[in-house]
């Protein structure tokens, strides 16, 4: 018997091992949801080693890629810089389009409320000197415009055309010292003349007795023959009543931000 075992020792051991392996395997199949002590032990022992190898590899790889093998990095950097510039330019362009769209939308809404034919124009230049307040727009007599036509934006009155060329016009802003607009206080209907004063306006010839308060809106009266009635000009910022005199001094801030004037509407009125 012993001789027989010795003779077939190898096949028998092999068979036993296979059988044992199958038994362990089949036993474990029933407890798949549990981590065995063996698994835990092996994992605990190997985890630091794995981590060490991982860190070492990453460090070595990082050194190689960041400090030694930089050909790809250089190319990537150039490509990404170009792409970044392109995307930034596109973003600026998109924002510009969005803002122009918003402005034109407001202008269109205003145009519908005026009940007058109007022509949109673009501001292309400013006055050559610092003393006067005029701007140049890209529409002229070829587009049906003529001297004296009122120019407005959605917020209110801008000015009137003073010089006309076939494809350009110069607009005298209401803030110019030589500009005068027949106007009235919206609340109590006090009449006066809004004169330019550089960056502000004065509301002249307002009688002393009229109750004008800071914040009162000033609108066009429609009696000057240039601007239609009811267009906003500005808001009262200061009222001074002297002890004597027929009139009070009223300072008005324009509602239009002339520093950011881009698109305007020229109202095509009937008056020659």
């Amino acid at each position: 018997m012993l001789d027989l075992l010795k003779k077939y020792r190898t096949p028998l051991l092999t068979g036993c091992l296979v059988l044992a392996a199958l038994l362990v395997y089949s036993a474990n199949l029933r407890h798949q949801d549990r981590t065995t002590f063996f698994e835990r032990l092996v994992l605990q022992v190997t985890a630091p080693l794995q981590k060490g190898i991982d860190v070492g590899w990453k460090t070595a790889s990082g050194w190689w890629q960041h400090y030694l093998w930089l050909i790809d990095t250089q190319q990537d950097n150039e490509r990404l810089t170009l792409e970044n510039r392109r995307l930034r330019a596109e973003l600026v362009g998109m924002q510009e389009i969005r803002l122009a769209n918003e402005r034109l939308h407001r202008l269109l809404e205003f145009r519908e409320t005026t009940h007058l034919p109007a022509l949109a124009a673009q501001v292309i230049a400013e006055d050559a000197s610092s003393w006067f307040r005029t701007v140049v727009i890209d529409r002229g007599s070829a587009d049906g415009l003529r001297q004296g036509l009122p120019v407005v934006v959605a917020e209110g009155v801008v000015g009137r055309i003073i010089v006309i060329a076939p494809h350009q016009s110069r607009v005298l802003l209401i803030t110019d010292a030589s500009s005068a607009v027949a106007s009235l206080v919206q609340g109590n209907r006090t009449r006066g003349i809004s004169r330019g004063k550089g960056n502000l306006l004065t509301f002249d010839y307002a009688v002393r007795q009229a109750q004008i308060e800071v914040g009162d809106p000033i609108i066009t009266s429609g009696t000057g023959g240039i601007f239609p009635k009811g267009l906003p000009i500005g808001q009262v910022t200061r009222v001074t009543r002297e002890a004597f005199g027929l009139f009070q001094a009223v300072e008005v801030a324009p509602v239009v931000d002339f520093a950011r004037l881009e698109e305007v509407l020229v109202l095509i009125t009937d008056q020659p």
């Binding site: 292309i124 400013e126 006055d127 050559a128 000197s129 610092s130 140049v136 550089g198």
Partner: peptide, 21 residues
């Protein structure tokens, strides 16, 4: 004059521009 009317207003404060002329 072209610089004063068309270029300077784009980066200088409103209605304050050097008089190159």
């Amino acid at each position: 004059i072209l610089l004063q009317t068309a270029l300077f207003p784009r980066f200088l404060p409103f209605f304050l521009k050097p008089d190159l002329l």
